[in-house]
Structures are given as C-alpha cells and as structure tokens.
Design a protein around this nucleic acid. Sequence first.
DNA 1: GACCAGTCCCAACTTCCTCTGGTACCGCTT
DNA 2: AAGCGGTACCAGAGGAAGTTGGGACTGGTC
Lengths: 227, 227
Amino acid sequence: MEKIKLWIVEDDQEWLRGLKAYLGAQEDLEVVFSADRPELVRDALQPGTPSPDVVLMDIMLHGHPEGVVLAEEVGSFTGAPVIMLTSMEEKDLIFRSFQAGAIDYQIKSDYESLPEAIRSASARKSTISAAAAEQMREEFRRLKELEREFETEKLKSLITPSELQLLELVDQGYTQSQIAERQFVSIRTVKNHIGNVLKKLGLSGSKEAAGKAREMGLFGREDQDKR
Amino acid sequence: MEKIKLWIVEDDQEWLRGLKAYLGAQEDLEVVFSADRPELVRDALQPGTPSPDVVLMDIMLHGHPEGVVLAEEVGSFTGAPVIMLTSMEEKDLIFRSFQAGAIDYQIKSDYESLPEAIRSASARKSTISAAAAEQMREEFRRLKELEREFETEKLKSLITPSELQLLELVDQGYTQSQIAERQFVSIRTVKNHIGNVLKKLGLSGSKEAAGKAREMGLFGREDQDKR
DNA sequence: GACCAGTCCCAACTTCCTCTGGTACCGCTT
DNA sequence: AAGCGGTACCAGAGGAAGTTGGGACTGGTC
C-alpha cells in the first residue's frame, strides 16, 4: 500500500516534533517534509522536494495568520489538499482559510482525529467539525442577509417616494386613472412616475415592477414577513 | 455496540428500498424510520417514533426542494445531524441546505461513501465532497466581495466629490493651507469640507479618514491593487 | 507668538432631483 | 371608437444637497 505523503508546516517546535512522531507512527502516513518558517516552504515548492498528498498547515505562524496565504500558494502549486491547524476556533480565520482553498480545518488539541482527517483529505473530502461548520453557517447567514439588504438598497436608491407610492397602488390592482383620482393628481403625473420607474428598472410592465418592489420589502413592513 | 439509528426521507420508491437494504446491511447501521412524503415525516416528529441518530434527506421531494425546509424542522426537533441527498450537485441547494443546518451533502450515485458519511455525521463531522466545497468556496468568495462592495458603497454615499478630492490630498501629506493654494479655494473651505467628512465618519483626525478612504479604494484605481 | 488641525456656528450660491403637468403618439382589447 | 397601458419628449416650481466662504474659538507644537 502506498503511504500518504505529508507536508507539515508548524512554527511551534514542540508541536512539530509531536506531530511528526505521532503521524509518522501511523501505518499509512509518512511525513516527507516539514518546516517551521514560511520561507522554507516556499523554497520547497521549486526543487525536488517530494510532493505532498496532503499538507498540514498551522494557521498562525509567528503570531500572524500567514498560514492562510501560504495555504493558497502551496495548494495551487502542488495541487494537494491543505488541512489548516489551529489552537482555537477563530471564526474569521476559518473563512479566510476556506476561501484560500483549504479543504479542512482541524483543532490541534483534537490530534486523535487528525489521521482520519488526513485520509479523508487525500480522498478530497473535508471533515469539518460541527463547531466550525456552525460558525460557517452563521457567517453564511449574515452574508446572505447582507446580500439581500444590498439588493434592497440598490432598488430603494433608484425609486423615489412618490414613485413607490404609486407602485404600491398598482400592486393593489388599481388602474392608472383610479390612482390619479385617489391621489388627487393628473393621469399625466401617474403615467410619468410609472414610466420613470420602468425606465430605471429596465422593465416594461407596471405589474412586474410593483411585484418586484413588494418582494424586496419596499412597501410597508407592518404585515407581511416571509421568514 | 450500539447501532446508529437512521431516518430516511426519499420520494423515489426504488431508491428508498435500495438505501434501506444497503444501509441496513451494514453492521453498525439500522434504519428505524423511512418516509416518502413530507407529511409522514412531520407526523413522526411527535409520537413515539424511534428518534434518529442521523437523518438522510432527499433534497428534491416531488420535484421541488422541500427537503430543505424539512431538514431544518427535523434537525431542530430531533437534534440529529441531517445529511442531504441529491442526484446532481446544484449550487444553490447546497447553500440552502447548509444554511438550514444540514451537516453534510452527499451525491446519491456515490452511495458507497454513504456509510462512512453517516458515521462521521453521527460524530458531528461533515464529509463534504471536494466539488461541493469548491462551489461553497465560490459562493463565499462572491459574498465576501459583495460585502466589501457594500461597505465601499456606504462610504461613497457619505462622501461628496470635493470632500473626496481634499481627502486624497490630505492622504498625500499636504497641509490644509497647501491644499487651499493648490485647489484655489480658501482655507475655510478646506476646513469645512474636512470637518464635514470627519463628522460624517464619526472620526477626528483627517489622516485617519484619508487612510480609510484609500483602503476602501475610493481614490483612483490606476495604481494600487492589493490582491 | 505663529502655525496648524479641529470644532461650532452661519450664509449665500449653484446644481441636481423630484414632483407636477403637459403634448403627442403607438399598440392592444373590447 | 373608446379606454388603457406604455413610450418619448418638454418644462416650471420647489426643495435638498453640495460648494464656497466667513466668524470665533480651542488645543497642540515648534
């Protein structure tokens, strides 16, 4: 059986030695390269260093999260899956690692589960912990809400108050002349407002525009709340 | 050894039977409940149905992604980790499932890896496939970029053109009187503009404000590009 | 003391946007 | 033919915001 070739990047000498010993003792794992400084890793990318099947990368190197950028470099150069190691579960770093292409994220103190994580990683599977997944979920939710808000803001900045009011009446099914009566303005005003909205939204069809505005929550929030 | 108790929700009778047979044949797995319709699952939530250790949930039930909402309900009611099943890797559904609290996401055709995924899930670990992870990564990237753009827009909407111009000169190290000369305006104008910016940003210190504006890319994009 | 940055007021002027209404015309449905 | 929605212009009134200045004052720093 072919052993899984590991690279380990870890600035804490103590941990590095421990990891090498512990992982090297596994039947199917083999540490072929290790480094405690980013420079050494970058050197290893060009010459004949045995290429890795899986890379273990400490997320914090000498006090700052250099592991993140390094992970991206190593990942794209060697094509190997990268597992990030960290002491604490720090939300922002999980995302940065994830974005940088790391396949997995493991807590150092949980070293017993590392061999299994490495085997999964070599098969291109991530075994993200529940806590980490939960934090990603939260961040995801936040970003999705933000995306929605962003869209809403963009719409709101296009539509003026009176245009919006007319749209609401359109949405309720009134005809343009009915709206004109109700609002004590001429049909011309109504036609202009709606025409302007349609031009700004790039639509043709006041029903469409009104529906869109409603979906985006631009009308009163008193009643409808789809969550 | 205690067997892992499974719930299976799957509308395709063929698959449901296959899954029950295949998974039930595993030594450490036991299918304690299965359903082919959402209603049956909701019924199972209250009475004495054996509670699950892991739930398998088809993401598409009768043509529409009802599995997503169902996953959230089942997950929060039973507290069990939920694995979503699907035929194809559809980006949007992965996120929706993930947000809904699903711990994992498996492709049906890849059924050989299901038992292992179930074991991981029962230990609250997800074994997301590389393809799915890559899609999540992309979506993440997009959302993060959007977040940044959002922040930028918010700033830009606060700062007026001439204020921005003065900020740029401040950033280049000119004093207020130098800026006044250069722009052929009185010192009073400069002081006012900068004062207004500081009030709007809630800062005190024009250097700070200028730096922030630069970081947000509000100045010319011709040269600096930090990526 | 001179110089600079920052803070609070106030006051013109300009420019742009909104709101309002208008004329004229097209296409569709009833 | 009448009614409705939609499109393309135009134009005046009003208001909000941006720009430019000013006065008066505080608090550092060289």
